[in-house]
Design a protein around this nucleic acid. Structure first.
Lengths: 153, 153
DNA sequence: TATTGTTATACTCTATAACTATA
DNA sequence: TATAGTTATAGAGTATAACAATA
């Protein structure tokens, strides 16, 4: 039968945890679209920005390490680093410690474009988070950091 | 009426709102993989679970409304509802108020499988969030709810 | 034996447009 | 004119396996 039980339960603090998957999906899509639109004039996409951010933060990294830090798989990372190298934003140098690996390094041009992109990213973040309390904005980022810092199962 | 930013963020290695994009990407990938693996034995994917969850929560919904609630686009939603209907987990009924639209409704079988899937989802959520403090787990979900509840730009 | 990076391939997801029937 | 849903198609993203060089 048709139970008139259409109880529109408010998304209160109740059964939230099972929704973490669907919620992350929605949140990521919203952020990805906004970022993509904003970065398009700079000629890069989110995946490029993520790599530049980590190269700028941590110094030269192997593609393996970049995959762990930004997500994706080996073949995608090859394409992303190819793109960055073609545009002169990063270079592949031989790793000093592992002859199998590269040390992908950000260039001067890369740093310059990353600085531009960071202004854009900050503006995007402001738009994405602007409807939330200021404290909650930082809290969300902090909790996301903790979430992704999970020990590998 | 935001007060002037009296709490300056450390611009250095701190959380940093500019990282909300890359962080959401990482978080979503982690959750999506874990959910997909766990739901596979039940024969559904994350997108199906998201639709069932909202149908169970809100009652019959148009495909338009489902898109707003779960993300995706019109063609993807057609496929997802097709899948659910083929498996007898949901049915398309004519909308009582709009003859263009369907009222997608969860079936008895749908509720049964959703109950199973929710057990799985809860287990997955426990694994995904298990390394965080209990309070932080709920807080993350609550903040994600607020994040995706942004007024459409 | 395992791992880094490359290449090739297939598959899924996404975006877009055209179309209908309604509003 | 605009919207709900369908269909078709192209493009991007993703997963997978094979391979060479090195650990």
């Amino acid at each position: 039968m048709n139970p008139p039980d259409s109880t529109p339960r408010p998304p209160g603090p109740g059964p939230g945890r099972v929704r973490v998957g669907p919620l992350l999906r929605l949140a990521q899509r919203r952020a990805a679209h906004t970022f993509a639109d904003a970065l398009r004039p700079l000629g890069i996409e989110g995946r490029h920005y993520g790599v530049l951010l980590n190269l700028n933060l941590h110094g030269p990294l192997s593609q393996r390490r970049l995959i762990d830090l930004t997500g994706g798989d080996k073949s995608s990372m090859v394409r992303t680093v190819d793109d960055l190298e073609t545009r002169g934003l990063a270079v592949r140098r031989p790793s000093p410690t592992d002859r199998r690996a590269y040390a992908v390094e950000i260039t001067e041009q890369g740093r310059a474009l990353f600085a531009e992109a960071s202004v854009v990213a900050d503006d995007v973040a402001t738009r994405l988070l602007g409807h939330m309390d200021e404290g909650d904005q930082d809290l969300l980022c902090t909790l996301l950091e903790r979430f992704v810092a999970a020990p590998e199962a």
